[in-house]
């Protein structure tokens, strides 16, 4: 059960920052076409060109891995700019989820992360 560590179960069962963000600056949707998972991310930002995210909320349907990953990254993202998120990277996602993820599940693990990257890219 290596992929289902306590921390994943915890965030899966009580996802943080789940819901609608009133007064959001940017909204973005991202999906995994092959499995039907989708996420809607809303953020509040600070700054202009090299902005940081100050708050994130999200909604969507997904498996335990994608749900836990979105929940965890919604806390980590606060204060990050594009550069910081890129530096965090997929390695950071794996680390955040407890150190190992089945390679077949990386698309689930990075769903919210890819959505956040799109948010930064859409406002370059």
């Amino acid at each position: 059960m290596s992929d289902y560590k306590e921390i994943i179960i915890d965030h899966y069962k009580s996802p943080r920052n789940f819901g609608e963000l009133g007064g959001a600056d940017i909204s973005m949707e991202e999906s995994n076409a092959s499995c039907g998972d989708m996420i809607r991310i809303q953020v509040k930002t600070q700054g202009e060109k090299d902005f940081i995210i100050t708050e994130m909320k999200w909604q969507g349907v997904g498996c335990a891995i994608s749900t836990a990953s979105a929940s965890m990254i919604s806390e980590k993202i606060v204060g990050m700019n594009k550069n910081a998120l890129e530096k965090f990277g997929e390695a950071g996602i794996i680390e955040m989820l407890g150190g190992e993820i089945n390679p077949g599940r990386m698309k689930c693990a990075t769903l919210a992360y890819r959505g956040l990257l799109k948010i930064f890219e859409s406002h370059e």
């Binding site: 998972d37 498996c63 891995i65 089945n102 077949g104 599940r105």
Partner: peptide, 9 residues
């Protein structure tokens, strides 16, 4: 339970 989670278990 999502299909991916079921399949992985």
């Amino acid at each position: 339970i999502h299909a991916h989670d079921a399949a992985q278990i």
